[in-house]
Amino acid sequence: MANPIISRTELAVGQKAMTVKGVVRKTGFMLALSTLSGIGLFFYALMSGLSASFVYMLALGSMFAAFGLGLFLTFKPQMAKTLAVPYALLEGLFLGSVSLIAMRYAPSIPLTALSATFVTAAIMLGLYRSGVIKVTEKFRSILTSAIFAILILYVIQWVMRLGFGSSIPYLFDGGMIAIGFSIFVILIASFSLLLDFDNVERGVAMGISSDYEWVYSVGILATLVWMYIEFVRLLSYLQE
């Protein structure tokens, strides 16, 4: 599956089945929460003059908290209805703090990355709905392997950065290899949206309970946040 949060099969069939509209509404609600949380932090930091070190620590803290909550929902998807709101708020804090950090490279990066994220998401939805790209089992398997490989690289990078103050050679240093790797990750994140869309349609076809619409919404939000962060990373490299 594209996103571990919605890859579990412990989803129950209920009296009221989930719908695509239900997932869309809940995803929109969570996006709004994340946006408000991120914008609130962004302007508060600008007006109050929060230090760069505090913003950096907030970025790390919110990232790991959201990651941990998402990991918990992977094993307890029935809790998504309760934890979706705090998850969205944490993602908003993460987005806001990352945007503040990105402004050190260029003030235009956050807005450009946000625009690129939503344009890309719209394009992928169009490609999926038109059937130009079909989600086959082979496509799903290859993409899932790529996603987990990238996740492993991220974990190694976090350990090296936080534990030793170093980095994986070439992949995160802003050079041409790092730019190429960032473009590759953006492509993988974009294609993973196709799997998220397909997962929603599969859930609807299976008659899964509407309570689990929150699970799919959390998964889509996680993918969109991933895309945004990678666009920010790429734009920061290009500014350097």
Rank of each mutant, 00 (worst) to 15 (best):
N3T: 04
T27V: 05
V132F: 15
L221F: 08
V204K: 11
Y87Q: 10
S236E: 10
M227H: 08
T35V: 14
L90R: 05
F197D: 06
A149C: 11
F64D: 04
L50S: 04
L187E: 01
I186V: 15
F118L: 15
K26E: 10
V98I: 13
E240K: 12
L58Y: 03
T82I: 15
V98M: 14
L125E: 10
G38T: 08
I5Q: 02
L60P: 00
Y212C: 04
L114C: 09
V232E: 04
I147S: 13
A32E: 05
L114K: 00
M227N: 08
I109E: 03
F164C: 06
S145K: 13
D198R: 08
G61L: 10
S210L: 04
S115A: 15
L95F: 04
G22R: 11
V119E: 01
A189M: 13
I109Q: 05
F191L: 15
D211Q: 11
V24R: 07
G180N: 06
S167K: 11
L194F: 02
R104G: 15
A178W: 01
F148S: 12
S48R: 15
A149I: 14
A149M: 13
V23W: 02
L93S: 00
G92N: 04
V218E: 02
A149F: 13
S108H: 05
D198C: 07
F191P: 06
L41R: 08
A113Q: 03
D196K: 10
V20L: 14
Q78P: 00
L50G: 02
F43R: 02
I39F: 12
G219C: 03
E137H: 14
G70R: 06
F197A: 12
A106M: 08
T136H: 02
A84D: 05
